[in-house]
Write a protein that binds this DNA or RNA. Structure first.
Length: 212
DNA sequence: CACCAGGCAAGTA
DNA sequence: TACTTGCATGGT
């Protein structure tokens, strides 16, 4: 199995090349993007981020002091904008009240503790928490998403009833703990998923994982 | 027109 | 515990 997973990584890497995620300039931008991209096309998230940048509010200090309704307006293109504005505020409140308004202080927590803290925020589930851990804080945790699940199930590598933590464990027990590699691997899976593993299309013509 | 996108929480039984 | 539903814009 370990061989198979390494093979999958190399096939994806050779086909798509390095992805260099996350597409964001600062840890704070990555955090915001991680919430905004929940069940949403990344192109829509880019528009929302652009709105925030153009308004000059894409920093913890500026954004956390805005009314939720205004944040909602800026992030409208990302969809679920009222929900997401509330979720961001929940996270900002945590950072303000427990970490003196400092993302760096939040990130001074040890990985396991940091994951628990993030999960305690209403609106941050396992994928968002792990995306923040991996892509904003460079911690070696494997991020699982719908594409990861779909690809593994279609290749009969895991049973359909596997849930988030089990899928994550599936990767982490067979791979060396390397945040750079986890970063690329997840990005490559999303890349392959978008192109070859659509929901309604049961086969994957031309996919680098074909015939695994 | 229908379907989907880098989820999550709340409601129901 | 195990489903189901609401949230919403924008691209194909």
């Amino acid at each position: 199995m370990q061989e198979k997973i390494h093979d999958m990584y190399h096939r994806l890497y050779d086909f798509f090349g390095p992805q260099k995620w996350w597409p964001g300039d600062t840890p704070f931008e990555v955090i915001v993007g991680a919430v905004l991209t929940q069940n949403t096309n990344w192109r829509n998230v880019e528009k929302a981020i652009e709105n925030l940048k153009r308004a000059g509010v894409l920093s913890f200090t500026r954004m956390s002091s805005l009314p939720v309704s205004l944040v909602a307006e800026y992030i409208r293109p990302a969809g679920y904008y009222n929900i997401k504005a509330g979720r961001l505020q929940n996270l900002f409140t945590l950072i303000k009240e427990r970490y003196e308004g400092s993302v760096d202080k939040l990130f001074s927590e040890e990985t396991g503790a940091l994951r628990q803290v993030l999960l305690s925020v209403r609106g941050i589930g396992p994928e968002t928490a792990d995306s923040i851990l991996l892509y904003a804080a460079s911690r070696p945790v494997f991020v699982v998403d719908t594409y990861t699940y779909r690809i593994l199930v279609r290749h009969d590598l895991i049973p359909e009833e596997y849930e988030y933590e089990e899928i994550q464990e599936f990767f982490m027990e067979y791979l060396e703990s390397d945040s750079e590699m986890f970063n690329e691997f997840h990005a490559l899976i999303v890349c392959a998923g978008k192109q070859f593993c659509k929901k309604a299309v049961p086969c994957c013509q031309g996919c680098p994982l074909e015939g695994m």
